[in-house]
Design a binder for these strands. Structure first.
Lengths: 311, 311
DNA sequence: AAAAAATATGTATTTTTGTTCAAATGTTTT
DNA sequence: AAAACATTTGAACAAAAATACATATTTTTT
């Protein structure tokens, strides 16, 4: 057998099956020393890579200050490498993943929304084994389904990583007319998931930034121009699972609410532990609003945002 | 010192600095056996993770058939796990990364475009050390600059991973008027980068799929509706670095070409080694067209696409 | 505060891994 | 085809890591 093929078998046997070099040698009929040489080569050629997961450094005093100021159950403040949106998202995603793994008991329901930050969290999750945990998609599909960050994909991937059960909401997140929406909501498949979502003990959401300008690309492809206009006029600054609110965190009443397939704002607010994961400069006003409206009670954010929130 | 802090020091010392457990024990004043226990714990708690990079399996006979049929310099055909766009992109990205590392001599210029597939490639790159390599951004910034897949970000990240020199094109990829475009192109900063790009010995591009329908979201946010309409009328099926072509791979002449800050189609075609990385069902026609027009001469794709291309 | 239980630590021993060196095999040059 | 050179191989040894077991320390319970 060719070296280049056997090296992968050896590497697997050593690191995954935890056999000794001698055992591997016997198994494949090569000398122990050759096994060792293949393993060295693998390390050298980066066929195996060793990754050290340094935990995000947190800032305890800021966390407590924020908890007190806004009356939150828990706050996680991570120091970020740089202020670039990419870094911030990756860091809070990682911190969010650790936090989640820490608090999950294994026998509960977790409703999740969607977005870049949640994607980062999912990417940072280590594999775990929580077979009695349900991951529930709280909002219908948004964006393009082939995208990594579609709610469905995120739900599936998260459930996969945790070895939990995914509960997929088989519906678009927002539809053209309230009639369609009603019809969907009365569909047994959809309604059963929404019922479950409503009873979740924990929710995990991103906080969407709203602006009538370009730049809020996320929404541009989802909402019509007219929707954006009316929401803007009514003072929307952001959304959680497509429920929009103004800068005081007050819910915005609008026809759009009758076209969203997902939990209502009250149902969202009724979930006992509501984790939001959001950070970055441009989200400051929106996060503040969500806190004021008590839409969430657990916040995972970056240090800069935390400092600004304390001002 | 607290366990939870020292464990990271120990892990670093062991895996990064390659000290023995005894040496680490002496260094931090703890017993060798305790060092061992910390290391076990680290492994258990996934503070260290061991990643095995299985190379993408390739299909040699298909590769050769494609090389012959289309007269290509080289073809890489990867087997993918599933047909989902995510999987395909990740797999060809990985294969592209290996291919690139294999062919790079270390003393050349590599022009790159942008897109999801190139992002996947960059993500799959191992760190390397090619200080004499230049990574040149061939097309101005597109999409939202804070996005991971902006050309600038990709160029920077790739250069970073390879320890090469990034050459950033400080300009939008497409502008509103040909006058602006001319002005930009005459800017010394921009023109010097474009000159370098033109002389690259290798180019690495994605193949953009064009359609007048929704779904081609990539372009929707970049081109105006009018642009899309006229391109559609002229039979555009795709683009490479925003140079559009029809289903025969023939370049589409249109006013839009005077508004693109990037290499011209001829300049692109003059680069000796033109690597395209693209796959997935919906890109079939577009890839075929690019091959017919000899816009590329090296192709990295997935098995399904390869089979379809052979029909 | 004493007893019980759980957790942490260290010594001694066994097992596994890493290194050296000389012989064997393969490759290139003349 | 022989010589010169490079590469691969495995036995023997040295070094390091893993385990078992006994003891000490801390935490929890009574």
């Amino acid at each position: 057998m060719n070296n280049s093929r056997i090296i992968y078998k050896v590497v697997r046997a050593y690191y995954e099956d935890r056999l000794t070099q001698q055992e591997i040698g016997n198994k494949y009929g090569i000398s122990r020393i050759k096994v060792w040489r293949l393993l060295s080569k693998a390390l050298n050629d980066k066929i195996v890579e060793i990754k050290i997961n340094t935990p995000a450094e947190t800032n305890h005093s800021l966390e407590q200050q924020l908890e007190n100021k806004y009356g939150l159950k828990e706050v996680v403040v991570v120091k970020t490498e740089s202020d670039s949106q990419n870094d911030v998202v990756a860091s809070i995603g990682q911190a969010g993943a650790s936090y989640l793994l820490k608090i999950l008991e294994g026998d509960e329901s977790l409703g999740i929304s969607w977005g870049r930050t949640i994607l980062a969290l999912v990417n940072a999750l280590h594999n775990s084994n929580l077979p009695n945990l349900k991951i529930i998609q709280m909002i219908g599909g948004l964006g393009y389904p082939e995208e990594e960050l579609s709610g469905t994909e995120l739900t599936r991937r998260m459930a996969n990583a945790l070895n939990a059960t995914p509960k997929i909401l088989n519906s678009p997140g927002i539809v053209a007319t309230s009639t369609t929406c009603k019809a969907l909501k009365s569909d047994p498949q959809v309604s059963s998931i929404l019922k479950m979502a409503k009873k979740s003990s924990i929710s995990l959401v991103g906080i969407g930034h709203f602006s009538t300008e370009l730049g809020s690309k996320k929404l541009n492809s989802i909402l019509s121009e007219k929707d954006i206009e009316t929401l803007g006029e009514k003072g929307a600054v952001g959304d959680i699972s497509l429920r929009f609110f103004d800068k005081e965190g007050q819910f915005i009443k609008d026809g759009i609410n009758k076209r969203v397939v997902g939990l209502t704002i009250d149902e969202l607010r009724n979930i006992p532990r509501r984790i939001a994961i959001a950070g970055g400069k441009h989200k400051l006003t929106t996060i503040k609003a969500a806190l004021k409206g008590e839409l969430i009670n657990i916040l995972i954010t970056d240090k800069n945002t935390a400092i600004e929130l304390m001002k």
